[in-house]
Amino acid sequence: MVLAAGAALGHPQGFHERVSLAVSLKNVDGLVVVDVDGGERAKLIRAGADLNHDGLISGEERPLLQKKLLQLALQGLKVRVSGYPLVLSATDVKLSTRDDHTVSETGLSLAVLVAASVPSPISDGMKLEVEAVSADRSHVLVEVSATSAADGSVVALERHEVQPDEKWAVALRGLGAREPRIGASAPADGGRRSR
């Protein structure tokens, strides 16, 4: 009940996570952005990186803070292509402490580029399945686009607020010529989600 109310009000104090996934023939790239509202939650995360308890996040402690946020950003994210699980690796990370290097209630933000490659080409008709749970179990906004192999043009597919315990599936199209499929699942019609 409380979580539902929080979601209806846009959970003003919590985690806000957005994931943009770009699917191409052989890769799935993503940008994950997490904003942590100012408040107790942010303070706890900061405190967790303050190893010497001096109330400051030093240069040496910053990577720890970044690591913690990275873990929170990616831990609930699972992506599959027609049942084949992808291993998303972070390729670049940016952290913003909002110019506040103390253990305070100031919010935090993190952006991370992720990428995963697939053993066989991804083709039109396959399904991209996404599960996403943010650290406070609020919804995660997920956007999916496809890059054509033919001319590199980008086709926007769908955007959805993925709820906890939801498996959201997007039918892939706009990738180019049909290729042998990977995975055992049959292609489905688009946009159907299941819980």
Binding site: E143, V144, S145, V154, A156, L157, E158, R159, H160, G191
Partner: peptide, 9 residues
């Protein structure tokens, strides 16, 4: 769910 149609990708 809504179709995602941004002005510019």
């Amino acid at each position: 769910s809504e179709p995602f149609r941004p002005r510019a990708m």
